[in-house]
Amino acid sequence: MRIAILGGTRFIGRAVVERLAAEGHELLVVHRGEHEPAGLPAVEHAHVDRHDGPALAAALTPFGVEGLVDISGMNAAAADAALDAVGASVKLVAISSGDVYRAYDGLHSERTTDGVPLTEESPLRERRFVDGPQYENLELEERYLPRGATVLRLGAVYGEHDYQRRFEFVLRRVRAGRKRIPVGSGQFLFSRVYVGDVATAVSLALSGDHRGTAFNVVEPVTAPYRLFAEQILAAAGASDVELVTVRDDLLPEDLSLTGALSQHLLMDSSKAHAVLGWAPADVSASLRRSVRWHLANPPSDGSDDFSADDAVLD
């Protein structure tokens, strides 16, 4: 299949490109040219601002696109530009997030709004979080689903090349040789998914016919945050590090997710299992692989200030 990928050079996009290239698809990676990391598969690139509809159409039309994977869709304007650039026969896959659910708003407004796990039928947010050229997955879905796209609602994505550094709340302390880490009650449930398993879901969505359907794509078992921290420590070979329970109001800011939160973000992926035929690979192996990469590739702006830890641990 001839597949255009909007945003295919960084974290999720990179994994998707690697997966689809390995499967033998002909790919066109559309991006602005700001990120050209080494090690990407040798596929065709088009340096285009995806918000420029005419320029995007000019890049996609001669390629003869049969499938479109939108990873960098930000809002209605971004989705409209992409949809206007392709014909009705093009198979569409759009990456969204569990932030479309009302529970996400509940978490950020310190309310408990919904029971969990969240299914694809759970209430969506009414409140919009952005105004202007920023991310709003509700707008993205409102454009793509009526056009027959398969929408993948992801949990917290982790893995190699994760620029959000979801393990850093533990690993920056491991790198510094810290032997005690303050944590809260650690019961928060936040569904996760490995980036390689996201690429698998994209491949399955392209190969099937699931028009106008949204799927939660998350691991079926979610460790509460304290156990998650313990799993990261074990994968890092740092099981001797002690997690010390402290009051939530004393937690350093980057450890706030280990405290007591108002609303869990636990998502149910049974529909993806049953309909897409999706299942994650070995989750333990994925975690170990991810931790190894993050230890070997520390962030350039990582902080070595642990005064907030010391203040609560002393």
Rank of each mutant, 00 (worst) to 15 (best):
M1E: 07
M1H: 02
I3G: 02
I3N: 01
G7S: 00
G7R: 01
R10T: 06
F11P: 02
R14S: 00
V17P: 00
E18C: 01
R19L: 01
L20W: 03
E23R: 03
L28W: 01
R32W: 00
G33N: 04
E34W: 01
H35F: 05
P41K: 03
A42L: 11
A46F: 05
P54H: 15
A55Y: 14
A57W: 14
F63L: 15
G64K: 10
G67K: 15
V69H: 08
S72Q: 09
A76L: 15
D80N: 15
D84N: 14
K91V: 15
V93C: 04
A94D: 04
A94F: 09
I95C: 04
I95A: 02
S96G: 09
G98A: 10
Y101H: 13
G106T: 09
L107H: 09
H108E: 07
S109E: 10
S109N: 11
S109V: 14
D114I: 09
L118R: 02
S122V: 09
S122D: 09
P123R: 14
P123C: 12
L124A: 13
R127H: 12
R128M: 03
D131S: 15
D131W: 10
Y135M: 12
E136H: 07
L138G: 14
L140W: 02
E141A: 07
E141L: 11
E142V: 09
Y144E: 05
L145D: 08
V151M: 11
V151N: 06
V157L: 01
F169L: 14
R173E: 07
R175D: 04
G177A: 11
K179H: 10
V183R: 00
V183C: 06
V183K: 05
Q187K: 11
L189H: 11
S191E: 08
Y194T: 08
V195M: 00
V195E: 00
V195H: 00
D197G: 06
S203M: 03
L204V: 11
H210D: 10
R211N: 02
T213N: 07
T213V: 09
T213D: 04
F215C: 04
F215R: 04
N216D: 03
V217T: 03
V218Q: 00
P220Q: 06
Y225A: 00
Y225D: 05
R226K: 05
L227V: 13
F228R: 05
Q231L: 10
L233K: 01
A234S: 12
L243R: 01
R247I: 03
D248V: 03
D254P: 03
D254W: 12
S256M: 12
L257A: 14
A260L: 13
Q263R: 07
D268M: 09
K271N: 08
A272W: 07
V275P: 09
A279M: 11
S286K: 13
L287D: 06
R289H: 15
S290R: 02
S290C: 06
V291H: 00
R292I: 12
H294M: 14
P299N: 04
S300V: 15
D305H: 05
D314R: 10
D314L: 06
